[in-house]
């Protein structure tokens, strides 16, 4: 097992750390950086609970080696609210009842966040496709989709 000195830009903050070659980005972010907002649901890339944005794109952090993320920008759920202010997606999740047990919520919000950066006015089907890799067992997804659509509207208004 090799050891590697890497640096990660996580939520705009630079972290230098030494990691072992076989550790996942998920484990390093949770254990070493103590950012426990991302969740381990399966550790096999099947559920999306560990979603982070790697250079802006949603990935399953359980399927990325920490050493592979060297020098890359990572956004976790802790980086979504800015200066203590919730993002419109987070507000919409609360208002629309898109949260139940909450275990899928961080990954779901990050995926939605990435979607709305690429597509300011997504159709329902586009939202469904975008979040299809984030399993949720509680909500039946309806209120999540409603929330993302509503957040897109709010963001458009805010940007106009």
């Amino acid at each position: 097992m090799s050891h590697h000195n890497i640096y990660l830009m996580v939520n705009g903050k630079r972290y230098s750390l030494e990691v072992e070659s076989d550790r996942s980005l998920l484990d390093v972010v949770r254990e070493d950086l103590n950012l426990t907002g991302i969740k381990k649901g399966c550790d096999k890339g099947d559920c999306g609970a560990c979603t982070v944005l790697l250079n802006g794109k949603p990935v399953n952090s359980c399927m990325v080696l920490a050493v592979q993320a060297d020098g890359k920008e990572i956004t976790t759920i802790e980086g979504v609210a800015r200066d203590g202010k919730l993002d419109p997606i987070q507000v919409a999740f609360i208002k629309h009842g898109a949260v139940q047990c909450g275990f899928c919520t961080p990954g779901m919000i990050l995926t939605a966040w990435a979607l709305l950066r690429e597509n300011r006015e997504p159709m329902r089907e586009e939202i469904q496709k975008a979040i299809s890799g984030n399993l949720c067992r509680c909500t039946g997804y309806v209120q999540i989709i409603d929330a993302i659509q509503s957040a897109a509207r709010v963001s458009r208004v805010n940007n106009e």
Binding site: L35, G37, F93, T105, I109
Partner: peptide, 9 residues
């Protein structure tokens, strides 16, 4: 309990 769940706290 929603705020903690949407922020990951």
């Amino acid at each position: 309990d929603a705020i903690g769940k949407v922020t990951g706290e």
